[in-house]
Every structure is written in C-alpha cells, then in structure tokens.
Design a protein around this nucleic acid. Structure first.
Length: 496
DNA sequence: AAAAAAC
C-alpha cells in the first residue's frame, strides 16, 4: 500500500462485496452518447466504468487499473466524448477544428480496435475520429487529418511521422489517454512517448489505463499526471477469476502434442498460442498447420495486411489457432475465446497477465495453460510473485509418447527452415509465393462448436490424483530443491 | 533470452 501513499485512492471493492451494478443511464451523459451505449447493448457499468467515469467527467487525471476484459476502453472514451461535447465551439468550421483528444496504444491492432470503439460511442455526435498507425499507406491518414478530426488514435511511430510532416497539430490537445499505460511508459516506448508529449499543452487531462502497474511504473507515471486519482478495482496485476490457470510440466518436444490433446479433451474450438519469438511463432504455426489444424500466425515480421488478415480470420472463426507473439498479448478483444496457451513462458510476468486476459473476458469462463520446461523456473516464480498466487505444476500424461510426429532429422529441420523463409517472408521480387498444399483438415477441429460435454476428468487431474504434485513455488525458492525438481545444473539466482 | 513501434 505504501506505493500509493501519495495518491488519493478510490478504494478497491472487496470481491465479496455485492454492489448493485449501476446503469449507464444514471450518468449525466448527453443523450447522443447514451443512445450509442444503448445501441451497443450495454445497460450496466462494469466496476472500473462505475468508478472511473464520474472522476473523468470531473476533469481529473486518472490512473486506472482493472482486470483484463472489464471494459477499460469504454471507461475512458465515453466520459472523454462527454467532456468534448460539453465544451464544443460550434462557431469554428469543422476543417479548422484542432485535435482535442489523443489516444496512444502500443500495437497497431489495438489502436485500430480502440478507434472502432471510439467511433461506436461517437456515432450520433459530430465528433470525428481517425486512427493512424504504421505499416499502411500514409496518404489516407493524411487526408483524414487534414479534413479535421477531434479525436486522434495512434501508435507512437506513425504519429511522430505525421507530426514531422505537419499533417497534424497537437498544440490544442485537451485530453490524452495512454492505453496499456505501463507498456507505453517502458523503456522501448518512453523516448517516442516523451517526444509526443513535448508537442502537447501542459494544461490537459491525462488518463492512464492498464491491467498491470508495477510500483516503479506507478511512480514514473505520476510525473506525467497532475493531482491524479488512482482508480482500482480488485487488486492490480490480478488475473480474472473466471480464468482457470494451469501450469504443465513439458519438454520442448512434447509441447505441441500436449496442446492438441487438451484441445480435444476439452472440446476447445479456438485458442491463441503465444510464443516468445517471431521466428518460433512462424515455425510453430506451420507445424500446427501440418498437423491439420487451421492456423494463422500473427507477429511483427508479417506485413500489416497479413497481420490484419490473420486476426480477422481468427475472429471470424475461420481458423482454429492463432499463433502469436506478444503483439497480441495486450488489449485485443476477441469475444468468447475459450482458451489461451503459453507455448513459451513469457519473459515478463506482466505479459502473462495480459496474455491470459485474452480469454475469460466480460465474465465469461476461460482456460489458460502454460507449458513449463526446466529452464522456466525463474519466470514462473516471477509470475507467482506478481499475481500473488502459488501455482501447482501439473504432470500431463500424453496418450502416446510421440503421438503424431517423428523425431526430426537434421535434413528435415533444414528443409523446414527453408520453407519458413519462402512462406513467411515472401521475396521482395514480384511473383506468387508457392505454398505446399494445405493438408487435409483434422475433422475434430472443423466440426461446429458445441459446449463441452466432457464427463471424464482431464488427463492432468488423473495424473495429479495418481501422484500428487506440489506447488511449483515451494521448489523454486530454496535453491537446492530447484535442482531436485528439474535437475538444474546451476542454482537459481538468489531472491532480491 | 524478446517484442513492439517509422520509413
């Protein structure tokens, strides 16, 4: 609690405390906004919305922390639009309107999604919004900016391009939002962010939202805020309680087979599989495809066109698996996603919270399975510390030792990497990419979805009953027991 | 150990 001592805090609601959900129409909002909210099908507010919206309406700077999938986008966009409507100056011609609100997001897909939401809530108003991000033609963005826009949603790099090209002027911005604020404030983004903020007026309302805020970032963030109010629901860095989290002991060779077996066992129709590297993700996607699953890959080495196509195909249910890097870890709202797999344990514990937050959204249930190898002990310990929960490491029994694929030979592996080069990085020169014909689809994964009819306990429950597995953390903290569990050669580094 | 974000 000491890290919040200097901030006025709206107290977190205890999980057990039953508060009647407040309706949007009890808020002092313009009928045009209320109509748009009603059009979206929303009646009552989520806890973060109920707490943050009145405070944003008052004009305060806000640091908002709430679990994944609880409607943070609406929590800032609805009150900002309201404030903009209230202070409209109708005497100025629309083309001369300055940008009044700026929303920054860490990935292009997220910026796009936030822009869709802003458009949805602003649709009955005169307020115009536009999204700008890299990897696509600048010209349409430039034209939209020049035509005049009140709300600008952007990723940092492309926004700086537009600023330098004098396509937009930000010296009259009244409202700034950093979505996934802790990411925007980390080392990789901070220089661009500071540059952008240097173009904005000092007197403005600034809003930071994320599901994760480390104490360090909280402190850093305060230097960008004026008299901020901290709005938290439940505990920060918390995973949604509707997500069943499983950690399974695995070897690199077994990981794919384990994922496929769990998908079948639980009749899971769709899942995101996260990997840590772009190359690893590209290869893994092709491997799943060869196994007969309809698979799309999403990572930063793909063209923006391919990225959007992969995500769309997944959202439309045309593919079973989305294999992705952390480009897909944050913010993306994929409705009713039943499961997330961590093929690799993420390097940052925060990213674990965000990755598994793609499932179990808006109160739905979800499954998050993390495959843990002996070299991941340290990372798992970091996750346990962050989410303040101990995690049991389950042993999972595969139906057969190497069910679907042979141990690969050196030739096989090099042939495969060649294919990766051809398929995932099309040559710059013109000419269609030759792809191997898709293997016949696995009939299991292509049948229409039906709710789980499982009455057998899953294999990990059986394995657990057979040989009780202890909490992983109890093995990690004392050094010599790490060696006992994993046969590690070097002791884990001492706790800080 | 990586990823993301501009050309």
């Amino acid at each position: 609690m000491s890290e919040n001592a200097s901030l006025p805090v709206v107290p977190a609601t205890a999980d057990a405390e039953p508060a009647p959900p407040a309706r949007f129409d009890t808020l002092p909002l313009d009928p045009k906004l209320l109509r748009a909210v009603a059009d979206s099908g929303y009646l009552t507010m989520t806890p973060i919305q109920a707490k943050a919206i009145p405070i944003v309406l008052q004009g305060c700077d806000v640091m908002g922390a709430a679990q994944t999938g609880t409607g943070k986008t609406a929590a800032f966009s609805i009150p900002l639009l309201q404030r903009m409507l209230k202070h409209e100056n109708p005497s100025v011609s629309p083309a001369r309107h300055p940008v009044r609100a700026l929303v920054l997001a860490p990935t292009r897909e997220l910026a796009d999604q936030v822009a869709d939401n802003v458009k949805k809530y602003a649709k009955h108003t005169q307020l115009r919004s536009v999204v700008v991000f890299g990897g696509v033609d600048m010209k349409p963005q430039t034209a939209a900016l020049k035509a005049g826009v009140e709300v600008l949603i952007a990723t940092p790099g492309r926004l700086l391009d537009h600023i330098e090209a004098k396509n937009c002027v930000l010296n009259q911005v009244e409202y700034v939002v950093l979505d996934e604020a802790d990411r925007m404030l980390d080392i990789g983004f901070l220089p661009d962010l500071q540059r952008i903020l240097s173009f904005l007026p000092k007197a403005r309302q600034t809003l930071l939202f994320s599901a994760t805020f480390s104490p360090e970032i909280k402190r850093l963030a305060q230097s960008y805020l004026q008299d901020p109010i901290l709005v938290e629901t439940a505990r920060p860095n918390q995973t949604a309680s509707t997500v069943e989290q499983r950690f399974i002991s695995a070897t690199d060779d077994d990981k794919r087979a384990i994922i496929k077996q769990i998908l079948k066992e639980r009749s899971i129709r769709q899942a995101i599989v996260f990997g840590n590297s772009k190359l690893g993700v590209a290869r893994l996607a092709r491997a799943f495809e060869r196994d007969g699953l309809r698979t799309a890959a999403l990572h930063g080495d793909k063209s923006q066109d391919e990225r959007l196509k992969s995500l769309d195909a997944f959202k439309r249910g045309e593919v079973d698996l989305l294999v992705a890097t952390d480009v897909a870890a944050r913010g993306l709202d994929i409705s009713n996603l039943p499961a997330v797999f961590n093929f690799d344990v993420p390097f940052n514990a925060e990213d674990y919270v965000h990755r598994i937050g793609r499932t179990g959204r808006a109160g739905a249930s979800g499954l998050a399975v993390t495959l843990v190898t002996k070299s991941d002990a340290r990372l798992v310990a970091d996750i346990e510390k962050l989410i303040k929960r101990t995690i049991d490491l389950d042993v999972y029994e595969l139906e057969s030792e190497r069910p679907r694929f042979e141990r690969r030979t050196r030739d096989d592996a090099s042939e495969r990497s060649e294919r990766y080069e051809r398929a995932d990085r099309p040559p710059r020169a013109a000419g269609p990419v030759q792809r191997a014909p898709a293997p016949p689809a696995d009939p299991f994964f292509n049948k229409p979805y039906e709710a789980s009819t499982r009455d057998e306990p899953p294999a990990w429950e059986k394995a657990k009953a057979a040989s009780p597995v202890k909490g992983l953390s109890s093995y990690i903290k004392p050094k010599r027991q790490v060696a006992a569990l994993f046969g590690a050669k070097k002791p884990a580094p001492a706790e800080g």
